[in-house]
Structure formats: C-alpha cells, structure tokens
C-alpha cells in the first residue's frame, strides 16, 4: 500500500489537501526536499532494500552474518522480527521461521552470550542469572 501510494506520489497523511497539515510544516518540507526524490522507505528493488539494511534476506548463513553485524555494531540484545509481508504465502513464512529457529537462532544465542559476557560483565547477575 505504502509503496503503491509513494510510486504514484500520494499519501493520505501528508501533503496538500490533508486538513491536519499546517502551512508551516509544508513550507519546511518544501524547503528541505527536492521534488520527486526518494523518501524514507522508498526502494526500487530488493537489492536496494537489502543494501540499505531495511531487510535481511538470504540463506541461514547470510542472515546469521548480517544479524551478527548488527548485534556487534549496536550491542542489541533483543530483536522483533517480521517474517510475513504483504501477500506472502503462509507456508513460505513458516519455512523462514523454521529455518531461523533451527539454523540461525542457536548460533546467535551462543555467540551473543559470549559477546555480552565480554562487553557487559555482570549482566547475568543483574538480570537475576538468566540463561
């Protein structure tokens, strides 16, 4: 939906003819953007989304590597992962989840445990000695 609206250049929440949009906020938008340029979330292909880090897709090894880069870079300990998009068939989403649970998750859990033990000594005690 968002992609379709962006492609034809229109939204229902922002722009001329939206009653809640103040003149001042529109003026700022005009001053800070060029017409027709890409906005947040715009992409022409999966490769572009992938390169921008908006999605992570590929074999279990690729997904593991990409997620590990994020974990190392940001020191994140929790992920909220969306496995299903748009009109994707349920069986495909289930296959992704199963692969993630069996071939990615155990590795990340082990690796991140080592990382957090090194970077945040005492974390286990603070959290009440979790796994």
């Amino acid at each position: 939906m968002k992609g379709h609206l962006r492609r034809i250049g229109r939204t229902q929440t922002f722009g001329p003819g939206i009653p809640s949009q103040s003149v001042k906020s529109w003026e700022q938008f005009l001053r800070n953007t060029k017409p027709g340029e890409d906005r947040l979330g715009d992409a022409k292909s999966w490769e572009e989304l992938d390169a921008g880090g908006s999605i992570i897709a590929g074999s279990p090894a690729t997904v593991r590597r990409r997620l590990w880069e994020l974990i190392e870079m940001a020191g994140v300990g929790n992920f909220l992962i969306q496995f299903h998009f748009g009109n994707m068939k349920a069986e495909h989403a289930r296959k992704s989840m199963r692969l993630f649970a069996t071939e990615v998750l155990p590795h990340l859990r082990k690796d991140s445990k080592e990382l957090f033990a090194r970077d945040y000594p005492g974390l286990d005690e603070n959290l009440g000695g979790g796994r």
């Binding site: 492609r7 034809i8 250049g9 229109r10 939204t11 722009g15 001329p16 003819g17 939206i18 017409p35 027709g36 340029e37």
Partner: peptide, 13 residues
C-alpha cells in the same frame, strides 16, 4: 476527490 490529485504524481506531475 480533488484532495487526492492535489498531490503530484511522482512528486512532479
């Protein structure tokens, strides 16, 4: 619905 077409196609047209 004039409000729909008030926004330019591709941000330009």
């Amino acid at each position: 619905d004039i409000f729909w077409v008030a926004q330019p196609e591709d941000g330009i047209y």
